[in-house]
Amino acid sequence: MIQVSIEVNGKTVTAEVEPRLTLLDFIRDVAGLKGTHAGCEHGVCGACTVLVEGNAIRSCLVLAVQADEQEVISIEGVGGDLGRSGELSIVQDAFCEAHGLQCGYCTPGMVLVAEALLADTPNPTEGDIREAISGNICRCTGYVQIVEAVMLAADRLANRNYKSKPGQPSDQTLG
């Protein structure tokens, strides 16, 4: 067993873990955050996507011991102030509005890759969006409304005057 300390959504989670524990299982079973989903556990489907040090990565392809002392943002760390439930980030809200989901299982991963894309590429083309989500398999939507959702989010982000990063208190209170 090895002790690891991982900052998950701004809160440090310290635990003794087996080296074989993936970051995915750490987030779900140790940190207790169930929004990160296991889809294939071999790095293809993208359902387990989280942000590590700001990069969207697959948490089933990282061991918890590798993420020691690193910052992780899971879907629970997107959205508004973590203390106030019911708030959504602009990206999350756009997914709701464009119906960029159905069963909701791949959705946290999709939202996170979209957040990561828009943080780097504020005015993405449809091609940029399709490339960004191409590692995340969705079986419900055929991606059409997901692409629309990310476009909508990009538009809305472009039209606001204050920028926040996922995991930090958002500007939602500023209206």
């Binding site: 955050l33 169930k34 929004g35 990160t36 899971s74 879907i75 629970e76 997107v78 959205g79 019911g86 959504l88 999350q92 809200d93 997914f95 709701c96 119906h99 989901l101 069963c103 909701g104 959705t107 946290p108 939202v111």
Partner: peptide
């Protein structure tokens, strides 16, 4: 239903 899913 969408709100709960986008929030994980």
């Amino acid at each position: 239903e969408n709100r709960r899913f986008v929030a994980g």
